[in-house]
């Protein structure tokens, strides 16, 4: 596949810099043009969908971890019972198209947000729950990369 998306964007950035920018008379428009070039450079155009898929896989893993942690204790099962049906099952299909994948990712992110908020409340009431603290740390480590 040539040009790759990244090659296309790199070429467009070069044209914007070498051809368009010298012809722009307004200071304001020149500044916006520099920002456009910078934003184009910040995005991984070739791997955007792959990265989204990897991020969604990480969310599924965290939701599975949360399910395991909840199901390991009767008190947790009671406290988080309403969330269990929303936690990702192992066989859930991965969409092939970006828009569908984005929607699934957003849904998983919403569930993880809910789980994380409830986990924080749980840990305030149960500071001795080392497994819960470890789960929260695992969430942070996964989301920090």
């Amino acid at each position: 596949m040539r040009p790759t998306p990244a090659e296309t964007i790199a070429g467009i950035r070069r044209i914007l810099r070498d051809v368009v920018e010298p012809e722009v008379g307004s200071e304001y428009a020149r500044q916006r043009l520099r920002e456009v070039r910078a934003v184009l450079a910040q995005i991984d155009w070739d791997d955007a969908a792959l990265r989204l898929r990897r991020r969604d896989q990480a969310l599924r893993g965290l939701l599975a971890d949360a399910r395991t942690w909840i199901e390991a204790d009767p008190a947790r099962r009671r406290a988080f019972a309403d969330l269990l049906p929303q936690l990702a099952g192992p066989g859930e299909p991965v969409p092939e198209e970006l828009a569908a994948l984005n929607a699934v990712h957003a849904r998983h992110a919403a569930v993880l947000t809910e789980v994380a908020g409830r986990l924080a409340t749980w840990l305030r009431a149960h500071p001795e729950d080392a497994g819960g603290r470890e789960l929260r740390l695992r969430m942070m480590r996964h989301l920090a990369v």
Binding site: A109, L112, T113, A120, R136, M139, A144
Partner: peptide, 16 residues
Amino acid sequence: LEPQPALRIAADWLRD
């Protein structure tokens, strides 16, 4: 525009 679990977790940590 979409859920931000990382920032929600961060906000909970800050509150704690």
